[in-house]
Amino acid sequence: MIGLFALLLGFPLIASQFQLDLANQVFLAVIGSLALMLLTGYAGQISLGHGGLLAAGAYTVAILSKDFGASFWVTIPASALSGALLGVIFGFPSLRLRGVYLAVSTLALHFIVIYLGTEYETHGSYDSGVIITPPVLLGYSLESPRAWYFMMLLFAVLAWLVAANLLRSKTGRAWRAIRANETVAEALGIGVSRYKLLAFVVTSSMTAVAGALFGYYRGFVSGEAFSIFIAIQYAAMIIIGGMGSLIGAVLGAVFVTAFPYFIEYLLFMLPGADQAANALFAVNYAAFGVVMIVFLIFEPGGFVGLWRRIANRWVTSAPNVVAVART
């Protein structure tokens, strides 16, 4: 544990700009992925609206810092708040809808949020996106990936702590009960509606903060950055990582964030790489689709499930527990 912290803190000393940038992207993804894991992996609610929530955070920063000159200390809590508000809206359909219907309602809300964002861009005549100036903290301007590294690390750790503590609390138990069986949860006296909404609020709030950080970090906010592909990537993170596990969320975030760079690396090992460069994003898309399908079909438990299976095979060669059913 201490070793991990030492590694995380020492990393900027040895890492290149590129590696630091990648690490920052991973931290951002970890925040969003932990948030989605709470919602889907623990409370059992499907969402395809994660891109819209990230966008909401980023646009909050854009609007507040551009139109009102607000500082980092204002915009981050504000984005958390706007995320929480959106969480109520995103969560509202969940009181009545489940499964596919819930998924498409969040998908639809995603498109609506993005539309409102681009509408803001056109009306504010930020034709190709809103430029955001780097935040100044204690007289120090956050610009380099190295400076951002510690900020992102801090938020990622905070997100982990929030998630882990929530799961240990009464709220976490209620979420698990709802995921296991809503009717039973209701019968046990758990306020199902309240806890469902709470799950959406917490998730959306955390995700919006990630979006706000993303806006600052990129220095640029545009609706095009938050395509439906983003939402799918986050869904991929929790599935590839392993449903119902915080570690899974982190692993999934690392995997999905690093994946395009890995593909790029592989592609440039091939001969004729120059032509391939144009098609990079297409290769990336196709490969991502394939990897996702492979996980969904062959290892729906993700990395965590895979690890458990391997561990089980090695540890227990115990005899089959064969019992005569007496039900």
């Binding site: 592909f229 799918i232 869904a235 991929a236 994003f281 297409a282 290769v283 990336n284 898309y285 196709a286 490969a287 991502f288 689709g289 394939v290 996702m292 399908i293 969904l296």
Partner: peptide
């Protein structure tokens, strides 16, 4: 959805 993404890339 994943298959759709794959088809787009392809």
């Amino acid at each position: 959805i994943s298959f759709g993404i794959f088809l787009r890339g392809l």
